[in-house]
Design a protein around this nucleic acid. Structure first.
Lengths: 198, 198
DNA sequence: CGTCTATTTGAATGTACTCAAAAGCGGTGG
DNA sequence: CCACCGCTTTTGAGTACATTCAAATAGACG
């Protein structure tokens, strides 16, 4: 059982999408739990089944794929008020393709597969809530595909900097390069070119 | 009102996800309609609001973005038993970023925004159904982002050919190039190189 | 201060693009 | 039946954007 104080951020976040009665809130809180991870720890590892959908209360995570050459490709970062999970693994309960690792000490609200199903069954509004979250994530993902095709590395970087200024500040540059799909060396060159242009 | 025969494909597709009672099926059929488009016609145009989520009964569509230089970037194709819409525009009912155009004569089942909401309200199972559809679309989209980073153009093409052999056959090569994020000239060179390798 | 990690810089290379032109492939009409 | 048209694909030369590898520099932390 979780204290309401700890979960304030989650409840506030949810209230901007749906209205839950006090009983529904209590039910939800009785089903989820909070877990703390240290910087560097893995929440999900490639090959394991992703058992939880996680809501970030504090901290920062990266989700990434390691290819055949051992190179890391960062798919997304998650900070406060974001979700993180390998959804492909979670919804099918099969081994994950991706890793999720903490870039800072991180506090998460953990929704297990069974709990999510139980919540859907008991609070149909939550099905609506999660549908809407995923709809928006899907839209964002499609737009990112387009940006990766339509924009140069420089413009992708400028977009990232504009869109996620908070994330840029707390993450090493070589990880941003990976997220943008370029090498750390090239991002460095892009940045120095941007400085010259001003 | 739509005949059940015309909608057989939709009902069959839905039955693999959820079980609807005859009354629920009838209610659903009373709310949606079928529309036919000719090859070349637009279902959605950049700047217009996307009013429908469409289920493809027959035919083929492409969804694409036109960038500042006037270049076309194909985000996805849809054939039988797939969905098509500019979801970003649909869920917010704001102007679309993307175009959807028919590559063949195409028959669609049209779910308007209001109808979808009405269906969610009356048949909660459908909220679950669409949540699951979108979850899978999101997972596919994320994996495509990774492939675009981790694979060369040649390997992306080989993956596409293996994954969507039916689509490759009915679509001109320059559109496949656009979907893969390369020029038509380069795809041609990739293909000729693949022939030499055998 | 030294060590470890992250960033920058430079030269050589590679993957994919641009532009231009030629070749292939249906369909249509004389 | 073939000549022509529009559209798609192929080929080639030159170019651009981004990578690789190596080395130097800068920052962070004990």
């Amino acid at each position: 059982m979780i204290s309401a104080i700890q979960m304030e951020a989650l409840l506030k976040y949810m209230s901007s999408h749906i209205q839950l009665s006090p009983e529904e809130e209590a039910f939800l809180l009785s089903k989820v739990f909070v877990r703390k991870y240290l910087k560097g720890q893995y929440i999900v590892q490639q090959g394991d089944v992703c058992k939880y959908e996680c809501f970030v209360l504090s901290g920062c995570t990266k989700m990434f794929y390691v290819d055949d050459e051992g190179q890391e490709h960062i798919i997304m970062f998650s900070i406060e008020d974001w979700w993180t999970s390998d959804m492909g693994s979670f919804i099918t309960q099969t081994p994950a393709d991706f890793n999720i690792q903490c870039l800072e000490n991180t506090v998460l609200v953990m929704f297990s597969y069974d709990v999510i199903e139980e919540l859907y069954a008991n609070i149909p509004k939550l099905e609506r809530f999660f549908r809407q979250i995923i709809e928006r994530a899907f839209v964002a993902s499609q737009k990112r595909i387009v940006r990766n095709f339509a924009l140069t590395a420089k413009d992708r970087y400028l977009y990232f900097r504009k869109q996620y200024p908070k994330i840029e500040q707390r993450i090493p540059q070589y990880m941003i390069a990976s997220y943008l799909g370029i090498t750390k060396e090239f991002l460095s060159k892009v940045k120095s070119q941007l400085i010259l242009e001003q």
